[in-house]
Write a protein that binds this DNA or RNA. Structure first.
Lengths: 351, 351
DNA sequence: CTGAAAGCGCTAACAG
DNA sequence: CTGTTAGCGCTTTCAG
């Protein structure tokens, strides 16, 4: 009774407010409009109990006509779930923006399909994860750019919220992971280059700072590359490389100091066009090198002079991580490690 | 009394739950621990009323030791504000990922500095904006990639939430906008190229689909470019250009059909390296062209063969938009249009 | 099949 | 300077 009165008053008051922000429609407004109780409205929305067709119809019409959308905060307070997934993406430089962006796209797209929104966390540290989880801002977390021995892993383990890593840490691996199979990519590149008859192969990898950070993927790529060289009986070497026009210098120096090297595999977004161009130029027309890249497909297409490339299925990685997370969230699926396989992409070479 | 009992019970119960999610610490727990009322805890956090140093000390210690973070939903329900800013960023292809990523970085970074988190909206449409605003998921909105006559503008105007556009729509311009001054960039490129003695200039712009979408910035760039050509008494033409290796074909065709053109201004992320390389190659060493680009600084550095470039201050744009939004949110600042000026960046050319 | 009512955890009057 | 308490809008028993 008291409630009813209050609501009527506020309803009337709002109807006459001029110019102010539009009245925020609540579930109570919908219930009045439809002539039912608020619990019925709630159940129509959640589908958690049977509703007669007529009632449902009336409620849905009321929701429509009032333009009602439930208050997310109230909902999360009452239901203890937010329908939001937290995403920690590296926004610093030195990472491959293309790849990050595509992963984010994959995460956002799939999340939306599962009915989740994405909260983009501002910092890359453990604290941001705790804030989001303990503050009940999110139901679960996707964490990108995981390093070999990442402190965030322990934080996540004791958080009480499900999470998926994008990246493959060393060690106990107690959390679900999705990553690209960099090791397999190393093998694949070697197979391809050696198959073309090249006997001395060079991997031009991440910038020194990334190498030193012991970013798991750089190590795994090198490991796969070198192991495959050994297995194929060819000679392989690995070089760090800056991510800008200085890549050209590094590439020239490599060609100079190792003139027999004829197969190149570049994994370095920023340095890619420079290094590729420099290698081709330095060896001259008579000794054309084979240059492959590891990067998203569109970047490969945008780079002149590549033989072909191995695509990083970045969007698929984001999608896979999110799908896994949603499966855990809704069906209590068992967390696993998932490595997406490399795929050779042939490039329509520009003459 | 009743409350007290309930909390003690749940506290005890939780202490013995094994393996389950950790007990969610509430403001009541903190109040008990510190021996004060919950409102005191609340006021310690918000600073909205004076607290004796001793009490503050005790409360802060309790917050620390319990690892309390307030429930975001409860907070937004009670305070009618979320401390979240919604960000609608284009994740589709055909836009400049570098730029988008940098804008996002700027938004996230500044938002965090102002105490806001970022909700990344999943779709680019009006509906997503309404959902976020009406569902009280956000306090305000930043909307990227605004087109000349964007339907979202009307949606935003009647939303009752502050918002800032990144992009400059045509027409009434009732909402605050932040954008790069593309028109000034067109003038600047022409001044530079004409200053170097080039009398026939070519603007190689966005892909046809972007041009046709009437993306405001493409139009403004072309307008500035052409007006400046006229003012400087040089001949200018504008071409659309695909964003991949086909850019090379377009560039070659331009050089072929207009052999006198010697100053080039490229605004097309994906096509940039191809077009630049093709132009230089097509004209040969004897007739070296001047090639400028409009893109973020790091991409310019990563592209061989540029004379210099005009940087798009993408991160600053995100930062400016967010700062403006926060000023509106907290001080009721007056919304304005802000166009960030272009800056010439000289490139350390690779020999 | 539907309604009433008890909270969810917090903020902000109001009352000292 | 501090405590009490009435909601914020929703979900979910419990009771028909």
């Amino acid at each position: 009774m008291f409630n009813c009165q209050r609501d009527m008053v506020s309803g009337i008051a709002n109807r006459f407010v001029e110019g102010g922000p539009a009245h925020v429609v609540t579930i109570t407004d919908v219930a009045h409009e439809a002539g039912v109780s608020i619990s019925t409205v709630s159940y129509v929305m959640s589908g958690k109990r049977a509703i007669s067709p007529m009632t449902r119809e009336r409620v849905e019409r009321a929701i429509q006509s009032l333009g009602f959308s439930p208050h997310a905060g109230a909902r999360s307070l009452a239901s203890r779930s937010t329908n939001v997934i937290g995403l920690q993406a590296p926004l610093r430089t030195g990472v491959d923006v293309h790849v990050v962006m595509q992963v984010v796209t994959g995460v956002v797209t799939r999340a939306r399909a599962h009915g989740y929104d994405i909260l983009l966390l501002a910092s890359d540290d453990s604290e941001a994860l705790q804030r989001a989880a303990n503050g009940s801002m999110v139901d679960a977390l996707v964490v990108m750019d995981i390093e070999s021995d990442d402190p965030r892993i322990e934080t996540l383990s004791k958080l009480g919220h499900p999470s998926v890593l994008i990246g493959l840490p060393d060690g106990r691996r107690t959390l679900p992971c999705v990553d690209f199979d960099f090791e397999a990519a190393g093998w694949m590149a070697v197979d391809r280059l050696a198959g073309e008859g090249h006997r001395r192969l060079v991997l031009i990898g991440s910038p020194p700072e990334v190498m030193q950070r012991h970013t798991a993927y750089a190590d795994r790529l090198a490991r796969g590359f070198l192991a495959a060289c050994q297995a194929s009986g060819v000679i392989g070497s690995v070089h760090a490389c800056p991510s800008d026009e200085r890549a050209a210098d590094v590439a020239r120096e490599i060609v100079r100091s190792d003139p027999e090297a004829s197969g190149f595999f570049i994994h370095n977004e920023g340095g890619l066009p420079h290094a590729a161009a420099a290698i081709v130029a330095a060896r001259g027309d008579s000794r054309r090198p084979a240059v492959m890249a590891l990067c998203p497909e569109d970047l490969a297409r945008a780079t002149p002079g590549l033989m072909d490339s191995i695509a990083i299925p970045a969007e698929s990685m984001g999608a896979a991580a999110t799908d896994m997370l949603c499966a855990i969230l809704s069906e209590g699926a068992t967390p696993t490690v998932r490595l997406l396989p490399p795929a050779l992409t042939s490039i329509s070479t520009v003459r």
